[in-house]
Amino acid sequence: MLSLILIGAALAGDRELDVHLSVQGSDDPGWNYLSEDGHLTSIGLRGGYPLHKHLVLVGGWEHGASGMEFNSYDDSGDDGSETSFQTGSYMNQFQLGLKSGWGPSNWAKFYGTVQGDMLYGIVRVDDDPDDDENAGQVEATGVGFGVLAAAGFETAVPLGKSGLSLAFYGELGYTWLAPTHIGEVATIQIDGVSGRVGTGLRF
């Protein structure tokens, strides 16, 4: 009887407001020129609104930035001179989808989520980072679309009698975005395992 009560409490949807850390992997070799370790690490915000006691509408934004410095041989002569430049890539993902949870109590539950994912990527290239007005500055932008699916576990701690609870969660899943052209500079794809850990409020 106690178990049924706890399950019922857990299934009731809450409004959610979270911050999280996200890591998305990909085999796409294009990432090797934008990110040192070849994957995308982001911070994110996510909000949720209950549509049904089993279903929460979730939406979020994730932002990741990485930089690279490049050196290459100067082909102009035989003196072996080199040229260098720096890149900065800024990946912003906007997600919208559904989340459904189940658990044995109102402080712990498993959940699954499927979300549409839109990537807005910005890549900047600069051959003289000390000069903000030099001619060798290039900015390129691009938009790509995809989906992510994940399963996770969440635990929540009530904050007194306010009705608020503090939640902690971790999820693992897969993110796929179609190959995305960031202007003429980059063509990238996210296609791999992704994971998130975060914390937030339930109210």
Partner: peptide, 22 residues
């Protein structure tokens, strides 16, 4: 989405690549 100084590029890794242009 980037910040106030868009050309304050983040630090990161290093790569040596083939010539970008001839």
């Amino acid at each position: 989405l980037i910040g106030c100084d868009p050309w304050d590029l983040p630090d990161g890794g290093y790569q040596f690549i083939e010539s970008t242009w001839d």
